[in-house]
Amino acid sequence: MKNNKLYQTLMDLQCELVAERNLVNPGQINWLQYDILSVLQDHARKPTVLSRQLGIKQAKLSKNFTKLRKLGYIKQTPDIQDHRELITEITAKGLTFMDDIAEKHGELYNKAQKIWSKKEQEQFILLANKLIAVLRKDRIGNE
């Protein structure tokens, strides 16, 4: 399979995107912690919902919350309806961190815009979203 062009291209793209991600986040947080912050940008969530959405066990999520709290990127408060549950939300510092990363994503976007024609951009969007939908559905199901 490694000689398959599609396989190799997907692996190369993944490696390049990881390298780009590392440029904007040199060792401060791991990928899962980035994903947690990314999801929390929309709105606060309970750990049960977040773990299902990210496709990980709550114990793993809890370990990553520890570092994000120490960095001041998230805060957790008891749920008003069920004090045993915590509501996790991104802080202003966490939003600033994510904004800095978004700026780097903007640079990646500008590069893609320069090298692809409008038609190529539309094809990429269509094909990438098709793959993203399948991956997401397989991971978190129909919520």
Rank of each mutant, 00 (worst) to 15 (best):
A44E: 03
I132W: 15
Q28A: 08
L86R: 08
T77R: 03
K104S: 13
D82V: 07
I90E: 03
S117N: 01
K93D: 10
K2E: 05
S51L: 04
R136N: 14
R139A: 09
L95F: 01
L61A: 12
V134N: 04
N110I: 03
M1Q: 11
K93A: 07
L71F: 10
L32A: 05
D99W: 02
K46R: 15
R21Q: 01
L135M: 08
E143W: 07
L6N: 12
K104G: 08
T9Q: 14
I36C: 00
K67A: 15
E89L: 04
Q113F: 13
D42Y: 04
D35N: 09
V39K: 02
K119P: 02
N110V: 06
A133T: 10
L108V: 11
H105R: 07
K2H: 10
L37N: 02
Y7R: 08
K2M: 10
L127Q: 08
S51I: 02
I140H: 06
G106Q: 07
K114L: 05
P26H: 13
Q81D: 08
I132G: 01
A102I: 06
R45K: 12
N142P: 02
T88M: 02
V134I: 14
E20K: 05
Y73Q: 00
R45L: 07
T48G: 05
E122A: 09
F124Y: 15
N64T: 06
T91N: 04
I132M: 08
R139N: 12
R45E: 09
L95R: 12
N142M: 06
I56Y: 06
M11Q: 12
A133M: 05
Q81M: 07
H83Y: 04
R52K: 15
K130C: 03
R45M: 15
T9N: 13
C15Q: 15
I101V: 15
Q58G: 09
D35Q: 13
Y73M: 00
D99T: 12
K114A: 12
L17K: 12
Q58R: 11
Q33N: 08
K46G: 03
P78G: 00
I74L: 04
N64I: 05
D79R: 04
Y109P: 02
Y73N: 04
K75M: 02
T88I: 05
Q123L: 13
C15D: 09
L95Y: 00
H43S: 07
H105M: 09
K70N: 06
M98V: 09
R136G: 06
F124V: 15
K67N: 07
Q8A: 11
S38M: 10
E120W: 09
L86H: 03
N110A: 14
G72D: 07
G55N: 06
P26T: 14
A59E: 14
K70H: 03
R139V: 13
Y109D: 03
I36E: 03
D12H: 11
Q8V: 10
M98E: 03
P26I: 06
Q76F: 01
L86E: 04
V24N: 01
A102G: 09
N110T: 11
V134G: 02
L10K: 06
